[in-house]
Design a binder for these strands. Structure first.
Lengths: 123, 123
DNA sequence: CGTCTATGTTGACATACATCGAACCAGTAC
DNA sequence: GTACTGGTTCGATGTATGTCAACATAGACG
């Protein structure tokens, strides 16, 4: 209880987009696992999205207003489109506060993907 | 000398496809970094490729013959196509030995991507 | 040599995706 | 109320991508 951070795998609170975790190198993924994990990788598989995600993830407080991160070389509708994609992939969450919309990183996601890529016991 | 495994970040031996590494959460990525990293994420952003990669990564000895991993529900040309993509992304290397072709995971890649996804100092 | 098996390549096709401008919605300030 | 600013949604468009069937190549074996 207290907080669930002891198990940084994946919280079920995430709308149902996320779960994934068997380390990539442990055993071959089945179709279902791959489908799920690929959704997240694909979301980060675009340079613009990766920059947006990094901008949010590295922003102080773990959240950022769209106005703070929309300087990635594409039009504002495109930024919005990519943020939506990241949200749909379960990597970001958004919240409107007054005039501005703030995005924050779903913390469990980083741990989950990191674990997925865990190298085979350091060889 | 001996072996370069002490620094699992990224070896320059990799043809030039790979480098990347500033943890995603450390500071906003610039266009160049994002372009590079996105190439790898995109390569894993397809369920079939993810399964192929996982199959190779989890195979004994860190390498696998195509014949061992081509059971992912798509035609053989498609498997070959995806393996090529993974190779172009710098995630896999291939070697022909007699009749069969063996693929193996570029070890530095797992460490690099894992580091890229390092959560912000455990909060 | 010819044949058979294991992979890779080519060409075609349908779907998905990134991008933009324009229109639209949410709040704030006047 | 109207006007303005921040953000999202819509529609269109060009490009990338996943897939397969058909063909090509590489080595093994006779």
């Amino acid at each position: 209880m207290s907080n669930a951070k002891v198990l940084p795998l994946l919280d079920p609170e995430v709308q149902g987009v996320v779960p994934c975790c068997p380390p990539l190198t442990e055993r071959p993924m089945n179709a279902e696992e791959a489908e799920r994990a690929a959704r997240m990788f694909k979301a980060l598989g675009d340079p613009v999205r990766l920059r947006l995600f990094s901008a949010v993830a590295s922003h102080e407080g773990g959240e950022a207003c769209v106005c703070d991160i929309s300087d990635v070389g594409v039009s504002q509708p495109t930024v919005s489109h990519h943020l939506k994609k990241l949200k749909e992939a379960g990597l970001l969450t958004s919240e409107r506060r007054g005039t501005w919309v703030y995005y924050r990183v779903e913390p469990s996601v980083l741990a989950a993907m990191g674990q997925l890529l865990t190298p085979p016991a350091a060889a």
